[in-house]
Design a protein around this nucleic acid. Sequence first.
DNA 1: ACCAAAGACTTACACTGTAACCATGGACTT
DNA 2: AAGTCCATGGTTACAGTGTAAGTCTTTGGT
Lengths: 214, 214
Amino acid sequence: MGKLSREAIVEAAVRRIDAEGLDGLSMRRVGKDLGVEAMSLYRYVPNKTALLDAIHASVLEEVQIPAPTHDWKSDARRLATSLLDTLLKHPGAMELFPTRPAYTEGSLDRLEASLAILERAGMPEPLRLAAMQSLYLFVVGHALFETHASKVGDDLDYRSLPAGRYPNLRKASVPAARQSFRHGLDVWVRGVEASAPQEEPQSLTSRLRSLRRR
Amino acid sequence: MGKLSREAIVEAAVRRIDAEGLDGLSMRRVGKDLGVEAMSLYRYVPNKTALLDAIHASVLEEVQIPAPTHDWKSDARRLATSLLDTLLKHPGAMELFPTRPAYTEGSLDRLEASLAILERAGMPEPLRLAAMQSLYLFVVGHALFETHASKVGDDLDYRSLPAGRYPNLRKASVPAARQSFRHGLDVWVRGVEASAPQEEPQSLTSRLRSLRRR
DNA sequence: ACCAAAGACTTACACTGTAACCATGGACTT
DNA sequence: AAGTCCATGGTTACAGTGTAAGTCTTTGGT
């Protein structure tokens, strides 16, 4: 029965959320998990919203930042996949991601690493933040979609739709979730590539120079 | 005092959500708005989750499908903007979008229209659904971000960060929300463009042919 | 030994979703 | 006209929620 602390509370809350989803999280339950009354938590957390914010930050900090290589495309892909992986590890907590902007230290670190990737990609400055945000939103959205689609039994079969009304949908192929994720990434990577001014890849020396600059 | 009905309930619920956000929506309040006890709603709606689903569907059906033109890029942009517009009109309801997969008729119609756009773009089949989903997720995510970022007073100023740790963030330019949306769209459009096999645009006659095919 | 403060507990309030049951009025059958 | 049914809405009740306010209890410093 270790001492109560903000971290211990957040930790317990994440466990509860992992086990029973966001709805299973109540102050009373978290308290019980820690062998303590609900109101005792309020000594360390001003209210439930703040606790949710802390959970969000905590999960975000689990995301591994892959070490930069010479290949910005693979760096971007690995960062995105890393984010996807931790999100899928916390199906309940990831519902917090779309609505909470993150200004914690951990999230700034990750944003910084993302922008560095885009710099190496040769993307001009006024676009970088927007491009990164679109990637982030895609990953989070996909993670949500992947976990919620599997709840509906299995996907609706588009082939059983009336052909007259839905010609394109009927012949659409529904890729497996992971593949659909990869395809989405492909579109993004190609989009970034096409937004970089120079068509040819950066020279090796300039690549190394930007890597050395931390 | 019109008769109670499922539609009237959904309508009232949407109004409440628009006025006071998702948290302001309770069965009792919706009942009161309709001059009725909370339990009476359960004659038309099995439970609150179903009501939320209905709200989701209702808002989604407000999205205008722009008439297709000869220019798939502008079609895609207009569809995305149309979705963004209705989402921003319902700041509370849009929180429902990330977690609810939509299999209603109205949502299938919109998906069908989207796929038709990608067909005109010359995108090969196995990628279309994934590409469209990535666009959809981007728009929804952006709408959420736009409404929630404005809640935090004004954005954090990246220029006040320690320069040693966040070199890229410090020199990042934070575009206005709308511009950031347009930039994200640009990346997507270029990505789709680069994913289509033929580099040159479709011939005029083949464009018209695919348009005629409904 | 005393005091102060910190940490946890107790009680209480207004509110939530919804299960189970009850009342009523109008339509339909006979 | 009488009787039946049932759709529609009301009532009560229960378990659970976040959290404000106040109270005990333990602990560390002097």
